[in-house]
Simulated scan of single mutants.
Amino acid sequence: MSTLYTAQATATGGRDGHTSSDDGRLDMNLSVPAGMGGDDGPGTNPEQLFAAGYAACFQGALGVVARRQKIDLSDASTITARVGLHKTGLAFGLDVELEGHFPGLSPEAGLALMEAAHQVCPYSVATRGNVDVRLSAV
């Protein structure tokens, strides 16, 4: 396997700390949401970062799948990722909902594209078998 790209980020202070990438493009404070007992400060959190990354990656995978199937996806198509954090015994787990919006396509056609993208998206491949990922199209 040949690595195409490697991202690097460093975090300090855990969920109420700071994270930044080695190239300086990502540089942000982290805050614990009130729903987790935190102060709901102005920073982001790991679940938001994961949701943003998954949504962007999945949107890219959709583009690949649509091109392969000769389907013209509108620039207005969107993917919204919702990442839930839950307790499983002494550990914690994630669940994900990916919602697609495809102007000009039926929800059924959009969902079919999403199912194909789910087979090639690196985030989907990485989470398969250990994170519940639900797909929906509107």
Score class of each variant (00 low, 15 high):
S21L: 09
S21A: 13
S21H: 04
S21G: 11
S21Y: 14
D22I: 12
D22P: 12
D22E: 13
D22H: 14
D22T: 15
G24F: 11
G24W: 11
G24Q: 14
G24Y: 12
R25N: 13
L26N: 08
L26T: 05
D27K: 00
D27G: 00
D27S: 05
M28Y: 10
M28T: 14
M28S: 09
M28I: 14
N29Y: 06
N29Q: 12
L30R: 03
L30G: 06
S31Y: 13
S31H: 08
S31E: 10
S31G: 00
V32C: 06
V32A: 01
V32L: 13
P33D: 04
P33M: 03
P33Q: 05
A34C: 00
A34E: 15
A34F: 03
G35P: 08
G35L: 06
M36H: 07
M36Q: 10
G37Q: 13
G37C: 03
G37W: 00
G37P: 00
G38R: 11
G38W: 14
G38Q: 08
G38H: 07
G38L: 05
D40Q: 10
G41Q: 03
G41A: 11
G41D: 03
G41P: 04
P42W: 04
P42E: 08
P42H: 11
G43D: 06
N45M: 07
P46E: 05
P46S: 05
P46G: 02
E47N: 02
E47L: 02
E47F: 05
Q48M: 07
Q48I: 01
L49D: 00
L49Q: 06
L49C: 04
L49R: 01
L49P: 04
F50W: 13
F50T: 02
A51N: 08
A52Q: 13
G53W: 04
Y54V: 08
Y54A: 03
Y54C: 05
Y54R: 06
Y54I: 10
A55I: 09
A55D: 01
A56E: 07
A56Q: 10
A56N: 13
A56K: 13
C57Y: 13
C57V: 09
Q59R: 14
Q59I: 00
Q59C: 11
Q59K: 13
G60R: 11
G60V: 06
G60C: 11
G60Y: 12
G60S: 12
A61E: 01
A61R: 12
G63N: 10
G63Y: 12
G63A: 06
G63D: 04
G63L: 09
V65H: 00
A66L: 06
R67C: 00
R67G: 02
R67M: 09
R67A: 15
R68Q: 15
R68D: 15
R68T: 07
R68N: 09
Q69L: 13
K70G: 08
K70N: 12
K70H: 10
K70Q: 10
K70R: 14
D72Q: 09
L73M: 11
L73S: 01
L73I: 08
L73H: 03
L73N: 05
D75F: 08
D75V: 02
D75Y: 05
D75W: 06
D75E: 14
S77D: 15
S77Y: 15
S77W: 08
S77H: 15
S77L: 09
T78C: 08
T78M: 02
I79A: 06
I79H: 10
I79Y: 08
I79F: 09
T80M: 04
T80F: 05
T80C: 03
A81R: 04
A81D: 02
A81W: 02
A81T: 01
